[in-house]
Design a protein around this nucleic acid. Structure first.
Lengths: 225, 225
DNA sequence: GACCGTACTCGTACACTGTACGAGTACGCA
DNA sequence: TGCGTACTCGTACAGTGTACGAGTACGGTC
């Protein structure tokens, strides 16, 4: 009974990669605030302290998780023109951030960036420089785009609905509350009642609109300053 | 001895406002991850459980803290033209978010918005509508601006330096590391070595640049869609 | 006086967190 | 047989949010 291990558990061996991937999957399902070392260990069929052989502490675990998200972002292609390449990576980033909503606040401004994060940054700078942006303009262009992409993801993360269809549902449900406040907040009421409910609100379209606006504006300023 | 209370402690009485303000101050000093009910109670000279008379739980405490930050944001004036008004509220938002860095991930997408948050939203929508934006364009304009502002704050929060002067310091310090990787990541090296160190990087300027870019682009599209 | 309700404070306890420490197992090599 | 290296994990500790319920103080009504 102790020796042959009757095939009930062929437990995949622990490894840093498996720990990180399982942690990402767990956070996708239950949110990052629900992720604890003990629960993650359970998920892996191991004792809690075993994780510390692969990861020095929880902070480093999260660093590793974040770098996995970065690794899912498509780096800008060198064969497309810069606007198309930037648009693609922007969409790719938004998709990764929607798959892993827990990561939104954590991607930027983590010290100890991780290899995937560095590779992406390098590729983006390269794309812009090759397109003829000066160094100073490259920094600006990078900064505006990333602020927009991550800021948009932040908004998306918080909203209580996930699809355009759902948005009208939620809006209709809260319409009573809004109409109660219609006198105090006429513009809010107008937007909710007069547009979101009737037309619906599509996050995808909205993202595209702002992205094009920024990309076009950057294009015009490319050769100036 | 028990009656006259010899003036050693005239402990200001607890109140919801005092609890929230003290929590904000504590988070400003030590970061929000250091904020615990017990430490906050100590700060107030009270027992931990006393806080629960004023706040149902920690989540609600943070909601209240976030609304304090919203209340520090200057609502757009109705007397300025819309671009000037939006620029002012953008700067005001950035400043509030820099005073209270812990709030950056939390402002957007909190359910149960709080009165200050609603008042600001209403004022912004009103400003844009009065400026002649259609309802649909108003939503877009709002979305782009906020994504940019909060995304920029997110970047600012994470960076390991706080002033332009400090930025060159840090860049110089990490220059060795970068030059080690100069062959693998030439564009990154170029940006750090060739620009940040020599010219410095001013977050204020950078914010202004992107903000103007967006505001100008919105102005041009005001009468289209 | 006695009694009650409301406002407010807080000690204790419980389940849960991250992780330090150190003992335990398995295996290849001397 | 012994030793080192790779790996696992039980126990323990300090710290967390908060449920529960007892405690105090004070105003009004008999």
């Amino acid at each position: 009974m102790t020796k042959p291990q009757p095939a009930t558990e062929p437990p995949a061996p622990l490894s840093k990669a498996r720990v990180l991937e399982t942690a990402v999957a767990f956070a996708d399902r239950h949110g990052i605030e629900a992720l604890s070392m003990r629960k993650l260990a359970d998920e892996l069929g191991a004792g809690a302290m075993s994780l510390y052989y692969y990861v020095p502490n929880k902070e480093a675990l999260i660093d590793g998780m974040v770098d996995i998200v970065f690794s899912e972002i498509e780096a800008p292609s060198l064969e497309l023109d810069w606007k198309a390449a930037m648009r693609r990576r922007a969409h790719s980033t938004r998709e990764a951030l929607n798959r892993h909503r827990w990561a939104v606040g954590l991607m930027e401004g983590r010290m100890d960036p991780g290899p995937a994060s560095i590779r992406i940054r390098e590729a983006i700078l390269g794309c812009l420089r090759r397109a003829g942006f000066s160094i100073a303009m490259t920094i600006q262009a990078y900064s505006v785009q990333d602020a927009y992409i991550y800021g948009f993801a932040l908004q998306e993360k918080g909203l209580p609905f996930e699809s355009a269809a759902e948005s009208t549902e939620v809006a209709e449900a809260t319409l009573q509350d809004v109409s109660d406040l219609a006198e105090s907040f006429p513009y809010l009421a107008e937007v909710v009642a007069g547009h979101v409910v009737s037309v619906g609100y599509d996050f995808g379209e909205s993202f595209e609109y702002g992205l094009d606006l920024i990309l076009d504006a950057l294009d015009k300023r490319r050769d100036e300053g």
